[in-house]
Amino acid sequence: MNRTLALVLYGIGLALISHFAIVFAAPYLATDVVIARIDKVRALTPNELRVAPPTSPPRDLVPMGNADTITASSWLDLRQGPLLFEAPLPRRGEYWSVSIFAHDSDTDFIMSDRDVQAGEPARVLIYGPGQVPPIQSDAIIARVSTERAFLLVRAIMRDRNDNADVEALSAELRQATLRPAP
């Protein structure tokens, strides 16, 4: 009887552990799968910004990706220290934002063109876990909860089938920089 009870308790315990392990690991795994897909196509270098063309089938890498955005992105490695992201706001486009997603897919930071003063560039200092931001800075501070994270700049195109407009917007996105924080 005791052996049967032990077996049942073991089974319940193992089922619960595997259940919660899968639920909590899923966001990390989903991130890793998409990063691996992007890496296969674009050879990701950590902390390097890359501007991607508008997503198009069959080369769309993210489920339910936005067909109307041009993106610049970087797979951040904050173990190497804080980073400074700087970007002039595009004069074209319907919307612009920069967001940072932790390895577990949480949105740790979001800033849009509405948060930037007219005529000024967006400046974001990015700090990882355990890193201490300066008390005073003219940049906006982003605190990221994991050492690896994904930085994503989104710019919405007026019309993705207007090639000249899309190329001009891409050129504006390419002016963004990401480098070690001074």
Binding site: A26, P27, P63, S99, F101, S105
Partner: peptide, 26 residues
């Protein structure tokens, strides 16, 4: 969506079917 306050199942679903979605305020 896109918020750390979501329950673990919603976060997992969001990551699988709509990774890097922004929070509803955005």
């Amino acid at each position: 969506t896109g918020s750390a306050s979501a329950d673990p199942y919603s976060r997992a679903r969001g990551a699988i079917y709509g990774l890097w979605g922004l929070p509803p305020s955005e």
